[in-house]
Design a binder for these strands. Structure first.
Lengths: 139, 139
DNA sequence: CTCACTGCAAAGGTTTTGCAGTGGG
DNA sequence: CCCACTGCAAAACCTTTGCAGTGAG
């Protein structure tokens, strides 16, 4: 994604377009693998050598708050960030710490139908996601 | 579950049966709602007033390591522990921090069939779990 | 111009670690 | 008896917070 698109995306949500925000969002898109705050800091340290780690967290919070990115939790305890916000699932590698987006419309439908038929007593479903654990060939 | 069963469960995995381990595992079973290390500490502070927080973490690690309990992650960032180790799913409340086990054999079958038909290129599935987000009536 | 945003540094909260001493098998 | 386990305290780690200064709109 080009920088101009990123600037628009931020502006459209009513956020100020700062170099730090552009760099962070660009990092999330180009890293493309659910980076941690630290991964992002490393990636942008050339273009933003003076950025504070606190700023990174504040920017990430703002982006999450405005639905530009999503938080992803892992067993390792570090928070990770996902630039893809459509309804999707995740493949977790149990050997390395890789996480990949898994898009499967058929699966979405399957689950939607299942939960429509089978209501859960005392619980109202907002959304759901499948966490698929396994190993990548490339690991 | 009675104390004797808990002692057996620990012993059967080749771990030493200490009062601290028994108390922690008993706490997880009787709290029954995915407690944090702190919740466990509170629950056992009468029977184990001198237990160190470090010990609790070491015991939890040992129990996870030997498949007696499971780790559960949340967006809040604190690690939580689940005494139910069979294949199951979780209901997450997006208002309070409640997590409930969700057991649904039909759903397991549905997903198993789906993933058998639809292989994921370059990825070998070990297991999967559905994270269902929503609200409990009781909240 | 003004207020949202950044940088800095300190604090907060959870989890880990090292080590000496203890107790379960 | 011996080694795994505990208690204690410090440290490591990730994330948040407060505040003064800056810059985007």
């Amino acid at each position: 994604m080009e920088i101009e698109k990123i600037r628009e995306e931020i502006a459209n949500k009513g956020l100020k377009v700062t170099p730090q925000r552009v760099a962070i969002l660009e990092a999330i898109y180009s890293l493309n693998n659910h980076p941690t705050a630290e991964n992002i800091a490393d990636h942008i340290k050339e273009s933003q050598p003076n950025i504070a780690i606190g700023t990174i967290y504040k920017v990430l919070d703002a982006l999450v708050e405005h639905n530009i990115i999503k938080k992803v939790t892992t067993e390792a305890g570090k928070m990770r960030y996902d630039g893809f916000t459509e309804h999707h699932h995740h493949l977790y590698c149990i050997e390395c710490d890789l996480i990949e987006d898994y898009i499967d419309e058929e699966l979405n439908e399957l689950l939607k139908n299942h939960f429509n038929k089978k209501r859960i007593k005392g619980f109202h479903i907002k959304n759901f996601a499948v966490q698929v654990n396994g190993t990548f060939d490339k690991c």
